[in-house]
């Protein structure tokens, strides 16, 4: 009698446990959210930044109006995949596309742009990765849309036509 009672209790507990777990799995808040995007944050520029030619970039250049920031590097294969799309975007739309050259050698970066074309207004030279780190970049490629200094849209990974339509198209 006692053992039967305990068996029932254990079974009930097991079922409740499974029930709780499956319920929490199906809840919306438990949807697998991996790395948080930086949307809604202000663009923080700590140290001075320079472009690939060594010219200093004013802070206002990035915080005035709409700026599309794209993290790229010559060693990054996915960047090469999205490169034609970026070129088509700048060719057909009025987009101020600024590159962030992430942990790259200047020679390699310039060769890359010569070989594949340069859709960027200019590229920020970020050898140490410090500027990108403070921005919340986890790797290349990543794309940020900044409107008046606020990060409005952030894509981790490559940008293609689907991603563009989903995350960026409504602002242009």
């Amino acid at each position: 009698m006692v053992t039967r009672f305990f068996t029932v209790v254990v079974l009930v507990l097991l079922i409740t446990m499974l029930g709780i777990f499956s319920y929490s799995l199906n809840q919306k808040s438990a949807q697998l959210e991996l790395i948080k995007t930086q949307e809604g944050k202000q663009l923080a520029i700590g140290k001075e930044i320079y472009d690939l030619e060594g010219k200093k970039i004013e802070k206002e250049f990035l915080t005035d109006g709409k700026v599309l920031l794209n993290v790229w590097a010559s060693w990054c294969i996915t960047c090469l995949v999205e490169h034609p799309f970026l070129k088509s975007i700048t060719a057909t739309k009025d987009v101020k596309l600024v590159g962030i050259n992430y942990k790259d050698q200047i020679n390699n970066a310039q060769n890359y742009l010569e070989k594949n074309g340069d859709p960027y207004v200019l590229s920020i030279y970020d050898l140490s990765g410090d500027f990108s780190l403070k921005l919340g970049v986890t790797g290349a490629p990543e794309t940020f849309l900044i409107i008046d200094g606020e990060i409005v849209s952030h894509r981790i990974g490559e940008v293609n036509i689907d991603v563009w339509n989903e995350k960026f198209a409504k602002y242009f």
Partner: peptide, 27 residues
């Protein structure tokens, strides 16, 4: 980067995950 990057989680946030198996074990 979001809560996802903190590996040292707070047990009080998912208490049932820790307590129910213990109860089952005891029983």
């Amino acid at each position: 980067y979001g809560e996802y990057v903190i590996l040292k989680t707070d047990p009080s946030k998912n208490r049932s995950l820790f307590i129910i198996p213990l109860i089952v074990l005891l029983i």
